[in-house]
């Protein structure tokens, strides 16, 4: 079984959000980047577990510049066998998906995170699946393999659904699919010798672009309520906030 895991980088979860160039671009100055948690904790770890149980290979792919090699090496340290980096700026979801689809021939399974926690798009997975003409299961919380068939459970509104699909297919991973793995010393040493293939990007496609960022105006200061007067809180929720 050949698995391709798509990994992206996101600002560290406590990173300060600021903008530059007249609020048209995210200011990366001083920001620490991490591997998107859904990609790392769930998609990548589950791919490694499936390889350990059934054999095969795990390849990670990232669309981005050379500064992303840090997170790619981390993915190799966690257990991927090799890596592909498509050397370009990830300018839009569709552009990224086209780069991934162009490299995805021959894989049984493409695994992604359910969304990137910066732009919260949840778009790339469906795009890759459509470009490849393959089934797509999103928000999967479990993924098991039996021969050439995958069994996947996904969250649906108000419950869960389990389905079987034959390879090849695309799956996006949500919380529950695996447990976070901390790379060990041996993994980190081995990662240095694993192949990281840099390939050139193909085409260009920018149908959407951010024209302006704004920071939300903060809450006006909190109104503290006397703990012995919950009737007052209920009154405020009814008459002032009008939410109940």
């Amino acid at each position: 079984m050949k698995i391709l895991v798509c990994i992206t980088k996101t600002p560290e979860t406590t990173a300060k959000i600021a903008f530059k160039d007249g609020d048209t671009a995210y200011d990366e100055n001083g920001v620490q980047f991490i591997m998107n948690p859904y990609d790392e904790w769930y998609a990548l770890v589950r791919a490694c577990e499936l390889k350990e149980a059934h054999g095969g290979t795990v390849t990670v792919i990232n669309v981005g510049p050379a500064t992303n090699d840090v997170i790619i090496r981390k993915a190799l340290a966690i257990g991927a066998d090799d890596a592909i980096r498509v050397d370009t700026e990830a300018s839009s979801a569709l552009y990224v998906a086209k780069q991934i689809a162009a490299q995805a021939a021959g894989y049984d399974l493409v695994l992604l995170g359910k969304e990137s926690i910066d732009y919260n798009g949840s778009e790339v997975g469906g795009m890759v699946a459509e470009l490849l003409g393959q089934p797509y299961i999103s928000y999967a919380t479990t993924l098991d393999v039996n021969g050439t068939t995958a069994t996947v459970t996904r969250d649906i509104e108000g419950g869960t659904e389990t389905a079987e699909i034959d390879f090849p297919l695309v799956v996006s991973a949500a919380k529950g699919m695996a447990e976070q793995r901390i790379p060990n010393m041996r993994g980190i040493m081995m990662a240095k010798r694993k192949p990281l293939n840099i390939v050139a990007a193909d085409g260009s496609d920018v149908l959407v672009a951010v024209s302006k960022y704004t920071l939300p105006t903060g809450k006006t200061s909190v109104k503290m309520i006397d703990p012995d007067n919950m009737d007052e809180l209920v009154r405020l929720l009814r008459e002032e906030a009008k939410v109940i």
């Binding site: 979801a93 998906a97 778009e123 997975g125 469906g126 797509y136």
Partner: peptide
Amino acid sequence: KSLLGRLAV
């Protein structure tokens, strides 16, 4: 969300 990307393509 699982339709959006597919429809865009």
